[in-house]
Design a protein around this nucleic acid. Structure first.
Lengths: 351, 351
DNA sequence: ATTAGCACTCTATTTTGTTGAGTGCTAACA
DNA sequence: TGTTAGCACTCAACAAAATAGAGTGCTAAT
């Protein structure tokens, strides 16, 4: 038995109907829905075949059919035709003239959540892939120094350093110079202990204080791999889909979104160079395919965006398996384009 | 009819039992529970009286009684005796050697949520009450300057400034000096437009660039009243209490916690100088007393903590009306003490 | 190959019955 | 006069039974 054109049409109709209603769909419905002009009986036969092939299944003997994971898979891979990009004026508006990456990301995640009605999350670029742009030490009090570390894309980190003995302005100046000349342009990942060691020696003539400062700065730079920032929004959209809304499941999902830790892994896994047919790093995980166990009743769509210079972040959208894939993919695509353009512009104003 | 000692004892017993079980409590239960040695019949009579007085109510004709809001009120005001402070070693451990306020707050809110099993939130101090400690402008590129603004309590704000024309080092130095001498020690609220105006004039001789910088810094300082940072944790604890866990209610509550905006108002309302009998700014809102409508099925306990110098933040705990008030109040109290001591230490290392 | 018709299945909903915790009231008791 | 035992009554919660209707699979006719 093979999957001929008619079977595909019917499968597509089943899935689309199910996406809308969330209810098992029966033969009669399809017979009206399609332009094939077939009676419900014929449809029944075909559905019976489709079920045998594993694309759909019956929740119980005398209910309609719902798509299986395999069915969804086929749908997103072959059946789903992409809508042409809608005009998305709103997004343009929301994103402009925000200065700091953080704010842009928060904005984006919010827009996505409200556009799609699914739970949404976004990560900033991983710090250790980011190039260091500039370090500034300033004295706050006699024994306290503030280190501001700025990296590509206007990422920024602050760190107070409590000194054991005071440091004078001259030393501070020298240190600033040293740090900047030595580290500028390197990615945070490239800054090794060895390098720090060398710097300490170069500066070491002066005093222990300097060594302490260098240490702290090094720590600030390196100790950051852990906390890739993640922003989430629309967690409560989950309640809009009855199949996810029972307390047990919802509780799990929401707490996963709340504490964010696990999510990092999921988003990291998004194959960064995945350039499939459609030419965009958009990845769809259906049901059990999802890397996180708690989400095996959901589908997860991820996309990576590019800030240039190897800085990449990831966007994830979490919804029921009967997610409106077309809409989501569409949204992600246009967003990607916009993000890319925003940051291209930002990074090279004149170039 | 008056509320004699025995009625109080019974009421207290009813409430305490209800706090534990969450089920309506019947006369028989109480007759065993108390040391009064009364039969269930007598208790019934008393309960009948209590109901008439409005302290308890029956969900339906032949169920046990549950406390009314009025009953809870009496309980927290009079009946509840406070446990002596438990040792809270964990907290000590968790809070030490975190440097930045932000991190401390995140930690605190997490600890509280896991200690109490309720949803928890905390605000940092309102910016405009905070004293400015130090401003530092540094050049990043030819036309981009980074302003770092540090306030009391190591609160910190960064702001990039894109200039229309380059600025030279000398100007930058002057500007730094000017900003610091003029603004140092003022609260962010005190920095008025007028003051900015004056500064612009003083500097205005030099160039428009300076004016632009001053403007941006001013904006950064002032435009911040809105985003008092709020951290939340344990939102999903809500699911632990059946009376809140039905999808509709839970969805409302969680989305309130998620977008945080409304919460600010609630916490602001916490009477800041409220020094009631117990001598601590702890406030309990039961049911409809809560300032936020969506929380009329909950109780909310708020406390304000003090960082000295007029900087205050607020902590809120949200749970079911049958919240374990004693435990919550206890937790908040010890936490207050600890927070206070941390920041006292931080602010005046030698004094 | 398609379709109409029909018997069958199974969930969801409604209806009815049953149980048990809890009450209010009365009458007896100390 | 306050307390208690006893009893009839109420009502939510649960379980069992009845009903409805959506959908299927199969067969026979087209």
């Amino acid at each position: 038995m093979d999957l001929d054109a008619r079977k595909k049409t019917i499968l597509k109709a089943i899935i689309q109907t199910y996406l809308e209603t969330g209810e098992p769909v029966g033969s009669r419905t399809i017979s009206k829905y399609t332009d094939l002009n077939l009676s419900s009986a014929t449809i029944r036969n075909e559905m019976s075949d489709l079920e045998e092939m594993g694309y759909i299944l019956q929740p119980h003997t005398s209910a309609g059919r719902i798509p299986s994971d395999k069915g969804y898979r086929l749908y997103v891979d072959e059946l789903m035709q992409e809508k042409e990009q809608e005009v998305t004026e709103i997004k343009e508006l929301m994103i402009e003239k925000t200065d700091r990456l953080e704010k842009v990301l928060k904005q984006v995640v919010r827009v996505l959540a409200s556009n799609t009605n699914y739970a949404t999350l976004i990560t900033g670029p991983a710090y250790h892939q980011t190039k260091l742009k500039f370090i500034q030490l300033s004295r706050v009090t006699e024994t306290q120094v503030l280190a501001v570390i700025v990296a590509e894309g206007n990422l920024m980190k602050n760190q107070f350093i409590d000194l054991e003995e005071p440091i004078d302005d001259e030393q501070l100046l020298k240190l600033n110079l040293l740090l900047n000349t030595q580290l500028n342009g390197l990615t945070l990942g490239e800054i090794s202990l060895e390098m720090i060691q060398r710097m300490k020696q170069q500066a070491g003539i002066h005093s222990q204080v300097i060594s302490q400062v260098v240490d702290t700065v090094a720590e600030a730079i390196q100790g950051d791999e852990e906390d890739t920032p993640i922003y989430t929004s629309g967690a409560t959209n989950i309640f809009k889909y009855p199949e996810l809304a029972d307390t047990a499941r919802a509780s799990q999902l929401i707490s996963a979104l709340e504490d964010k830790r696990e999510l990092v892994d999921m988003l990291k896994e998004t194959a960064p160079e995945e350039e499939d047919g459609s030419g965009t790093g958009i990845q769809i995980y259906i049901g059990k395919e999802s890397p996180i166990q708690t989400m095996s009743d959901c589908s997860v769509v991820t996309a990576s965006y590019d800030l240039g210079e190897g800085m990449k972040g990831t966007i994830g959208i979490i919804g029921p398996k009967r997610m409106d894939y077309e809409n989501v993919v569409d949204n992600l695509k246009t967003l990607k384009v916009q993000l890319d353009s925003i940051f291209k512009k930002k990074d090279e104003p004149g170039t």
